[in-house]
Structure formats: structure tokens, C-alpha cells
Write a protein that binds this DNA or RNA. Structure first.
Length: 740
DNA sequence: AGCACGCCGACT
DNA sequence: GTCGGCGTGCTC
């Protein structure tokens, strides 16, 4: 027999995104059988170097693809899923994100998976299912209201229900365990049922005013098509009702809805609002979940069992087979941008996801970001305005208090104190804001001017009096005992300068000795449950003074508050960052929205040393939209984002000269590209130059041509990482929130 | 990012 | 003598 040319045995390979801080995917070989079964989007266990990791198949290489002999190919350890658990569209979204944010694909892919699946746990976990054993147990639960409720619900499900469903129905696990102890029910592990329950809309009259109706109809025009909408609605104008009615229609078509809210926005109130309207499976994805709860919620979304997915930032990467609508509420909120590691912006990712998925995306806010207004301006987003407040509610009035000329007591204008007294006399509540935690921001020596500074940072220590006297650095967390004399001149008269919430609390107690001051900040609300207590007090019609930081500004309703005081808005107005006024205006409007939601008219007092500030006056005399319009013009003139695109490079090491020299060297390389319209700021030392003993410098790149900017930065950034000394930490921030 | 190997200080 | 400090090099 003549020799036949022997074709080499095919080598079956997959390209895997491995969870390491490296920019490439890695190829692994597998058997013909495994190759046939393997799907893009399934997990594989692989050995990587000396470690064992769980990666995701990004690509099946054709068997005849050329073999790269520069590395030795390893076999996968195991194929973990027999199907794709991340669908093609989400994989596409992840690939795009890794490119856009210049972050390693393996780590980006991890953000789409719940912890247990990242750890390689099997997909089909058994779910805890509760079954009723005794259906004549009424007498045994008579003494506990919670147990009665749980018993009633268990009775409705003769074959048993999963713990998730019971929890969603308001039955907590502890109650079930109590019933189990009494022998009323039992817990068994059963394979989960991922079939979606039928979607039912609660029977309630749908009320929408003409504006709301128009908004709903506009969005519903886009069924299987991408369109971005900005729902620009005043506080109290019924944005949520618009969301709910659009959702109702989309759910009726058998599609899933993804709803993203800010980190602190996922309150029990928000959840119950959705639950009472839609009787379907709602998957909740937020940071407070334990690993198995999170897995279950994720699986409900991924299998299509859940019709609604309600989550925070990272939920934007949840696979959903029938996604038909994305809603992102409070779209201006900072928490949508991840501020470390993989620095993505969920709002921008949401827009791209809508585009991939061919479904509408609704961004809503009472104070939309300037970025979103710019998208409206250039036709990439359609604006839907809601201007009517429901019922007789009036918009609160803003007042500027000039601190330069005002008579003051303890740094609070006398006029404001009088107004506060009037409200308290009328048994109304007051909200006082100060965006500074602690007792006072400075401890100074009366004799020589020495100031207490953190030994690790270029920052003053903040004086705290609670829970005991101490100095605390808010930048690195260092805690120091309170000195009893000046370390520089031994003088014993040390005094505090400026006000934190702690000091203001003291002063308010002094000014209004007959009224309770309720302080809400990280120092006073850290204990679990204390927020609930505060919340209960707020809901009662009793005169009270609420004192807090930004924590108070968001989401919560304070029906009895008729006066809001912001003691110091200047730190926001005078900040060097170009977005500072935007943030301050949003804060003012959001805070104002807390006041006078009922028929009582609210007033908002702003204390400032800059009463003539142009943008502040536009906000006070006109409204947020006028402010936004003016800001857009200013940004355009100054050629700032969103009219140019920014990329920020941070460089951190123990040697500041090394940082600046390194950045300078690479800035010069980038400047060589003549066809890139580029402006480079810096490198300059970071505003907090020394932080926890390390120095930071940064540099900002600005260009009007986003595509070209990203194109050049891609190669340049890789070269920079290659060239960096190992002791140096470099981070890239695409579309940074702050430029300084 | 891990996790190795690799070469210099204070310890049972 | 070692135990271990963290400097740098690699991972399909």
C-alpha cells in the first residue's frame, strides 16, 4: 500500500478568560468529546501556572487553526457547565467593556458571575424547600403573629415552596426554623425549578396624567428596537408610575425587565412598590445578599424565571434571556460608576447593552447629569419631561443666606435660627445638612498655630468626640489619641476650628433645648437597626431636628419636614473639580425634594460666602434645567466633558519624583501622534499628595475625538504597563468622574 | 493579581 | 546555622 499523507490529529482548543490581572485570554486543549459539548459562555476549571482557576470559554478555536508553539498548551481540568451560562449578548457586552475600559478580560468576566459560580460550584444547587407537615396547627402558632403569617402562607403551597419565595413573601428564615422546631413544617433540599411563574399585574386603577401618558407611549413605540430615553421629572412628578406602567406592558409581552437603582436606593419600600404591583418572580441583586441568595437570584434572572431583576450597579451584567427593557433610576447618582478596579459606568454600559439587545433604555432623574443632557442635545437620547407635581404639593422655595453680612450664632445665621424656631413651634420637622462628619475638621494650638495632622497623609486629623475623644484621619483611617497639650510648644490650650456634624449637634441642642436633635451619619448610624428607629421617629408628626450628611439626601421621604438648611455649600461650589457645581446643584435639588411633600410648602436655606455665584443664582431664581443649560454652555466654552472625552492615569509609589518623571516620559510618547487632537494635563501631584505613606500623581488626557483617543491610548497604556517599575501602581480611568 | 524562586538580616 | 523579609518574573 502506498503511504497516504497523514494529516496531523486535530487539536481541539478553547480560548478562556481566566480571572487574572492580564489582558489576554489563554488557550487550552480538550478532548474531541469535550470540544463538542463545550459552549462559548460555559465555565471551565483550568490550571494556570501553579494555581487552579475557574475561567469562561470566550471562543472555540477551529481544529485547524494554526498552533502557536511559543507556549505549551495545557488541557482543561474540567468542563464545568454543559451549556452557556453567560449568553452571547452579555459576553459581547463584557468584551466591549474590557476594551472600552482597558481592563483585563478575565476580571471583567468575573463581574458577571456570582461568587459561588466563580468558585466553580455546580450550577444546579439544591434549594431549601419548606413543606407543611401539620395543617391543623393553628393553635400552636397563636402566640406569634409572624408564625401565624408564615403558617398561612405555607398552607397555600401544599407541595412546598422554596425559601427564596417565602422570603420574598415576607417570611424570614428564622420564623420557618421556629415552626420546624414545633414540628409544623420541614426543610428539604430539592432541585430548583427554574420555570417562570405566570406574570400577573395587580388589579389597580392605572392613573397617569397626560405628561406621564405621553412618556409611556413614547417608550412603548420601541418594542424590539434600541432607543435611549431621559425621563426628566421633577421630584414628586411620578417617575416611578411611568416606569411601572411601561414595565407592565413589557412584562405582558413575556419579556424581562432590568431595573438598576443606586446603592442606597434598594430599600424595602422600593422593593415592596414593585412587589405590590407585579405578581411575578422578582430577583433582587444587591451587596447585602449572602452568596447562595445571590446565586439563586442570578439564576432566576439567567434562566428567565425572574421577570424583573432589581439591582445595583453590577446587575447590569446579569444574563437575561428575554430582556426587553432597561430602567436606570436616579441616573445622575455617583454610585453607578465603580471607583476602583474595573472602573465601569453602569449608565454607559446600560446604553450599550440596550443597543446590543435592541430594547429601550430609560434613564430617570429629577436632576439629570449634564452628560445625559448632552446626549439629548446631540440626538442620541430622547427627553421625556414630567413637570406636574402630583396633588397639591408645592415646590419648595430656595433662599440664599449671605454669611458675610448675616448676624450669626455658632455659625448659623440668626434669620435661619428664627425660621427654624417658627417651624418647631408649628410642630414641624427640620432637616439640617452638613457634609462633614466628626466633631470638627481641625485641632489647632491657640498659642503657636500647630495643627494636628495625620502622619501618613497630607491632611488634618478630624476631631471626634464619639464614642470617645479621639483624632481620626478620614483618608487612611488612622486613629490617634487626643493630645492634652501642643506637641510643638507645650501649650495646653488646644481648640477646634470649623464644624462637623458633632459640633453642630451640640450647638443645635443649645439653641433649641426643648427639641430633640436626631443625628444621622456614619458615626451615629453604624449600629444595625438604629436607622429603622430614626426612620420611625421621622414618620411621626412630632417636631424634631434631623441633622446629617449626604446620607439623608437620598430616597427617603420626610413628610413632616418643611425646612431644610444646608449649612455650608461653599465647599461644593469652590472645589477645583469641573463637576463640583453639578454635584452641588443636584444635592440641593435632591435635598429640597425632601421638604414639604405634603400640602405644606417647604423652604430650603443655603448658607454661603459666595451669594453672587452665577450658577447658584440660576438654580435658586430659575430651576435645575436652567442651571443645566447654562452649565452645558460653560462646558462647551471650556471644552470640558461631555464636549471632550477624558482619560485619567493615576500613578502611585513611594517616590513622587519617580511618579512625575514616569508620567512625563510617557506623555511625551503620546504627544508624538500628530493626528490626535490631544490635550494633556499634568502630571501633577494628586490633591491629597501623600496618602497612607504613598505618593500619587496623575495626568489627564482630553480629546474631542473619542474613537481616536481610545485607539491611541490602548497601545500606549499597554506599553506603559510593560515599562513600569514593579513598585509602582498604575491605574487607568476612562471617563473619570473627577479630573483632579 | 497570585505564587513562585532568590538573595540578605535577627533568631531558637 | 535557619526562618523569613519582599524584589522580579511568569502564567496558555
Amino acid at each position: 500500500m502506498p503511504d497516504q499523507p497523514v494529516s496531523p490529529a486535530p487539536i481541539y482548543r478553547v480560548r478562556v478568560a481566566v480571572p487574572v490581572h492580564l489582558f489576554d485570554c489563554f488557550d487550552y486543549s480538550l478532548s474531541a468529546g469535550q470540544y463538542q459539548q463545550a459552549e462559548v459562555g460555559a465555565r471551565v476549571a483550568v490550571s494556570f501556572g501553579r494555581q487552579h482557576l475557574v475561567g469562561v470559554i470566550m471562543e472555540k478555536l477551529p481544529p485547524d487553526a494554526p498552533l502557536d508553539s511559543s507556549f505549551k498548551l495545557k488541557d482543561i481540568t474540567e468542563l464545568l457547565d454543559d451549556r452557556a451560562i453567560i449568553d452571547a449578548k452579555v459576553l459581547n457586552l463584557l468584551n466591549w467593556s474590557a476594551q472600552y475600559y482597558q481592563f483585563p478580560i478575565g476580571e471583567v468576566v468575573q463581574s458577571a458571575l456570582p461568587t459561588l459560580l466563580r468558585q466553580g460550584k455546580p450550577y444546579n444547587l439544591l434549594a431549601r424547600t419548606w413543606k407543611l407537615l401539620d395543617d391543623q396547627a393553628e393553635a400552636k402558632v397563636r402566640r406569634s403573629e409572624r408564625q401565624q403569617e408564615a403558617y398561612k402562607i405555607l398552607k397555600l403551597h401544599p407541595v412546598g415552596t422554596t425559601e427564596t419565595i417565602l422570603n420574598l413573601a415576607g417570611v424570614d428564615t428564622a420564623t420557618l426554623k421556629a415552626l420546624e422546631k414545633k414540628g409544623i413544617c420541614e426543610c428539604v433540599l430539592e432541585a430548583q425549578d427554574f420555570s417562570p411563574p405566570p406574570v400577573q399585574l395587580a388589579q389597580m386603577p392605572l392613573t397617569a396624567n397626560p405628561e406621564q401618558q405621553h412618556a409611556i407611549q413614547q417608550v412603548l413605540k420601541y418594542k424590539n428596537k434600541y432607543q435611549a430615553f431621559l425621563l426628566d421629572g421633577l421630584t414628586g412628578s411620578g417617575k416611578t408610575e411611568v416606569y411601572l406602567q411601561i414595565m407592565g406592558k413589557v412584562l405582558k409581552q413575556g419579556k424581562q425587565v432590568l431595573v438598576l437603582v443606586p446603592e442606597i436606593g434598594l430599600t424595602p419600600q422600593t422593593i415592596s412598590r414593585f412587589q405590590s404591583r407585579f405578581h411575578c418572580h422578582i430577583a433582587l441583586l444587591h451587596s447585602g445578599l449572602n452568596d447562595s441568595k445571590r446565586l439563586q437570584a442570578w439564576q432566576a434572572a439567567e434562566t428567565g424565571k425572574a421577570s424583573i431583576v432589581l439591582g445595583t450597579r453590577s446587575a447590569i451584567y446579569t444574563p437575561m434571556p428575554n430582556l426587553g427593557l432597561i430602567i436606570l433610576d436616579e441616573e445622575h447618582d455617583l454610585s453607578f460608576k465603580q471607583q476602583e478596579g474595573f472602573r465601569y459606568h453602569a449608565r454607559d454600559v446600560a446604553l450599550y447593552r440596550g443597543h446590543l439587545q435592541q430594547c429601550p433604555v430609560v434613564l430617570g432623574s429629577a436632576t439629570p447629569s449634564i452628560d445625559s443632557y448632552a446626549l439629548v442635545e446631540n440626538g442620541k437620547m430622547q427627553v421625556l419631561e414630567l413637570n406636574q407635581r402630583a396633588g397639591a404639593a408645592l415646590m419648595p422655595k430656595l433662599h440664599i443666606l449671605d454669611l458675610k453680612v448675616a448676624q450669626k450664632q455658632h455659625g448659623i445665621s440668626l434669620h435661619l435660627i428664627q425660621e427654624m424656631q417658627k417651624r418647631l413651634d408649628k410642630k414641624e420637622q427640620i432637616l439640617v445638612f452638613l457634609n462633614r462628619r466628626g466633631y470638627a475638621p481641625v485641632l489647632i494650638c491657640d498659642s503657636c498655630g500647630w495643627q494636628a495632622q495625620c502622619p501618613h497623609c497630607d491632611a488634618n486629623f478630624t476631631v471626634h468626640r464619639q464614642p470617645y475623644q479621639h483624632l481620626h484621619c478620614h483618608h487612611c483611617g488612622t486613629i490617634h489619641r487626643m493630645p492634652d497639650h501642643c506637641p510643638s510648644c507645650n501649650h495646653t490650650e488646644l481648640k477646634t476650628l470649623g464644624m462637623g456634624t458633632g459640633k453642630v449637634e451640640e450647638q443645635l441642642n443649645e439653641l433649641f433645648p426643648n427639641h430633640e436633635v436626631i443625628r444621622v451619619d456614619r458615626d451615629s448610624t453604624s449600629r444595625v437597626g438604629s436607622w429603622q428607629k430614626i426612620y420611625d421617629k421621622i414618620q411621626k408628626s412630632e417636631p424634631a431636628i434631623l441633622l446629617g450628611t449626604q446620607m439623608l439626601a437620598k430616597g427617603h421621604h420626610f413628610p413632616y419636614v418643611t425646612l431644610v438648611a444646608i449649612l455650608d455649600i461653599d465647599s461644593g461650589l469652590l472645589s477645583v473639580d469641573f463637576r463640583a457645581t453639578e454635584r452641588t446643584a443636584q444635592l440641593i435639588v435632591q435635598v429640597a425634594g425632601r421638604a414639604g411633600r405634603g400640602e405644606r410648602k417647604g423652604d430650603v436655606y443655603l448658607q454661603t460666602l459666595r451669594p453672587d455665584h452665577a450658577l447658584l443664582n440660576t438654580l435658586v431664581n430659575e430651576n435645575y434645567r436652567a442651571f443645566a443649560k447654562q452649565t452645558l454652555v460653560q462646558r462647551q466654552i471650556a471644552r470640558m466633558p461631555p464636549y471632550r472625552y477624558a482619560v485619567m492615569i493615576r500613578c502611585e509609589s513611594r517616590d513622587q519624583n519617580l511618579n512625575t518623571e514616569f508620567l512625563q516620559k510617557h506623555a511625551a510618547l503620546l504627544r508624538q501622534y500628530q493626528d490626535l487632537d490631544l490635550e494633556i494635563w499634568g502630571p501633577i501631584p494628586a490633591p491629597m499628595e501623600r496618602k497612607a505613606g504613598r505618593y500619587q500623581s496623575h495626568m489627564v488626557l482630553l480629546s474631542a475625538d473619542r474613537a481616536r483617543l481610545h485607539y491611541y491610548v490602548r497601545a500606549w497604556w499597554q506599553a506603559m504597563l510593560q515599562d513600569k517599575p514593579s513598585s509602582m501602581k498604575l491605574t487607568l480611568d476612562v471617563d473619570p468622574q473627577e479630573l483632579s
